[in-house]
Nucleic acid binder design. Structure first.
Length: 658
RNA sequence: GCCGGAGUAGCGUAGUGGUAGCGCAACCCCUUGGUAAGGGGUAGGUCGUGAGUUCGAUUCUCACCUCCGGCACCA
């Protein structure tokens, strides 16, 4: 980093410009080099817009950005990507460059090279990058005709670059950025020299990535790095990563003994342990209560079905790749079901329905199996066997919007209860340019999308639209969350289906005595047990509220003298009537020979909400000494008062503020 | 599925061409202790699975399984 001083820049018409006192002392850099090819339009200094010149028929701009500016981050990262490419080509001649953008928290560059980069290579590359930054090579921008650029990059063996330029319209010029002799096709902007990047960067990892994001293309090697304005920011970022790792549901799932996997069962097929099962059951019990309030009725259906069912449902047309191969039973193909809709549709179809009895809402926490791509499996977030909080609502066309809204409100109740705020809603639509993934009924797609838009508008929830994300049978609203490692998942869904009435012949008798088609809403506000629990583990960092905690209270006797009293307290807690509890309170007792401090530590490690310390004083007073996992000591509390407190928390599903 | 990396006791890890240590957990003994680790001892591993190379493989090679980081996929 250069010494703080006022900055003077020469501009194309010979004038120079110096910056006002406000930026004196700050590091000031320009987005394009002093070899500015064309004139500047405007500059931004400390957030203020400065008009400098009239445009001279060009898109070239001068923007002044100090390193303190948040925008500097993107420049630093983009510059770092260039310097990364320089270093790689310097150390590994013959490696072709492709693209290298700035991304959230860093940058990457994709290279074409036969040999993989090793961890040692990364260290060497990073060292070379530091030298290039130290050398402070000046940046220069040139504008070339497209054809010259293609010829040039082909000549120097950069075939990927040449291909990129070919996709630019023929009459356009392209900008080439030079850092010393090294140069790259680039739109810019860049700092005036490589020294402006600073040294607060790290190369983090290498990964495979397909050329132009298409798995039919060659696979390139992507080197990722992180870059910041100063060491402090870098440290803070690394610290955040470490914190995220501590919340990772895979790690906590192991520590708290919630679930496990076995190679002998298979990839993506989770085994729920007793502690994890508590969370499942409590979620299911919550769903049971909420759905009963909303008029749902429960059903139960098998995990498999014959091929004919999935032919009829169109799963074998649109969804076969995601299904496990069939089992041959007595010469017939049976499939593990990937969804529950067909089974539920058969239940609807088993009886006649009058318009008066609609909507009919049938619900089931139902097990599904999907043959997800092996590389996409991730802990409980993405699995091959899972249990969905599923329900299908069969209604009249004129009821669809209101039913959809009703489901949105159900989502809102769940999200409010669990204080889930970090998510966004996505209206998932078909890709009209690529309809083979979807049922070919353009008018019905439009009508369904309009119902959802109207429902979303009326309920007032913000959302974004996304093409190519719909189900094959209809559009939907997905609730998108991010895992702790930054991967986005749909955690809840609310879908509209116009196909089923045709494929399954589902209808109702209208007030005119004639058969009318039904509309179907598929919904899973709690997603699957697997993904939702994974999310909750990370959301709560394993410190579940009392209603979800596998163990809600642990009794810690200080001496053997009070063991009998401790056992009595435990039994009274277990038998305490709790309206919402699936099976009373979950309380255990630490009768080990360890010291109290040690027992407290063990309970803390398991993130148990309540530690009930019992010694002679408590036994004498028929009380418990209550410690919260936050570390707060609530002191001695009469038994009855503690019973009231924990019962209230379990029933309301809301912890008392600590 | 693809590219790369990795699999050693329940968990976290060290290590080696001559069949393996450490910490935590477990178990036993001593300690009966007042809010995050008292002390001592014992047991526990066919080093992911299978094949190959070798006098000898946990170590080297290959295949498979599983996991991790990305990419692609993701109702």
């Amino acid at each position: 980093m250069s010494a703080p001083s006022p900055v003077t820049i020469s501009l194309p018409d010979g004038k120079t410009m110096s910056f006002p006192p406000g930026v004196t002392g700050a590091e000031v850099t320009a987005s394009i080099g002093p070899g500015l090819a064309k004139a500047a339009l405007a500059a931004e200094v400390n957030g203020q817009q400065w008009d400098l010149f009239r445009p001279i028929g060009t898109d070239a701009r001068l923007r002044i950005i100090t390193r303190k500016d948040p925008e500097a981050l993107e420049l630093i990262r983009h510059d770092a990507a260039h310097v990364l490419a320089m270093a790689v080509q310097d150390l590994f001649p013959g490696t072709q460059v492709t693209i290298g953008p700035a991304i959230e928290s860093g940058f990457y560059y994709d290279f074409a090279r036969d040999q993989p980069f090793t961890q040692d290579d990364l260290a060497r590359i990073e060292a070379r990058m530091r030298e290039i930054v130290e050398a402070d090579l000046p940046t220069r921008r040139e504008v070339w005709p497209r054809d010259r650029a293609i010829a040039h990059f082909e000549e120097i063996g950069e075939h990927y670059k040449a291909e990129l330029i070919r996709s630019i319209p023929a009459d356009q010029e392209v900008s080439i950025y030079f850092h010393g002799d090294w140069h790259d096709l680039c739109r810019g902007p860049h700092f005036v020299s490589t020294g402006k990047i600073g040294q607060a960067f790290r190369l983090t990892n290498v990964a495979g990535a397909y050329w132009r994001g298409d798995s039919n293309n060659a696979q390139l090697q992507r080197i990722y790095g992180t870059a910041w304005r100063d060491e402090k920011e870098l440290e803070a970022h690394l610290h955040r990563l470490a914190e995220a790792e501590r919340r990772d549901h895979r790690r906590i799932g192991k520590e708290l003994e919630l679930f496990t996997f076995s190679p002998d069962v298979g990839a993506g097929l989770p085994l729920w342990m007793p502690n994890g099962m508590v969370i499942r059951q409590e979620l299911e019990f919550l769903a049971l209560q909420e759905e009963r309030r909303d008029g749902y009725r429960r059903v139960a259906t098998p995990h498999i079905a014959k091929e004919a069912l999935y032919r009829r449902s169109r799963h074998l047309t649109y969804y076969k790749e995601d299904m496990y191969a069939p089992l041959d039973i007595d010469g017939e193909n049976y499939y593990l079901r990937p969804m529950n809709c067909p089974h539920h549709h058969l239940i609807y179809g088993a009886t006649r329905h009058s318009y008066r009895e609609l909507p009919l809402r049938i619900a089931e926490y139902a097990q599904d199996y999907r043959y997800e791509a092996s590389g996409g499996l991730s802990g409980l977030m993405r699995v091959r066997g899972f249990c969905q909080n599923d329900a299908h609502i069969y209604c009249r066309y004129d009821q669809a919007k209101d039913e959809f809204i009703r489901v949105m409100r159900l989502h809102a109740r769940y999200y409010d209860l669990m204080e889930i705020k970090e998510y966004h809603m996505r209206l998932s639509l078909p890709d009209t340019a690529n309809l083979e993934k979807y049922v070919d009924e353009p008018a019905k797609w439009l009508a369904a999308a309009e119902i959802i838009r109207a429902a979303m508008k009326e309920s007032g929830y913000p959302y974004v639209e996304a093409k190519g994300e719909a189900a094959f049978y209809g559009p939907k609203v997905d609730f998108m969350i991010k895992s702790v490692i930054g991967t986005e998942y749909a955690i809840s869904t609310n879908q509209l289906d116009f196909l089923t009435t045709q494929t399954f012949g589902l209808n109702y008798i209208g007030d005119d005595g004639k058969e009318q088609p039904v509309y179907v809403i598929h919904r899973a506000p709690l997603g699957s047990h697997e993904r939702f629990t994974a999310f909750l583990i990370e959301h709560y960092a394993g410190a579940f509220p009392v209603w979800l905690a596998p163990v809600q209270a642990r009794i810690i006797p200080i001496t053997d003298r009070v063991a009998d009293y401790a056992l009595t307290v435990r039994q009274r807690l277990i038998e305490l009537p709790v309206v919402n509890g699936t099976a009373g309170l979950r309380v255990d007792i630490d009768l080990s020979a360890e010291r109290m401090q040690r027992k407290i530590r063990d309970a803390q490690t398991m993130k148990i909400p309540y530690m009930l310390v019992i010694g002679d004083k408590e036994a004498e007073a028929q009380s418990v000494a209550v410690r919260l996992r936050s570390g707060r000591d609530l002191g001695q509390m009469p038994l009855e008062r503690f019973f009231e407190r924990i019962r209230h928390e379990a029933e309301s599903r809301r912890d008392v503020a600590e």
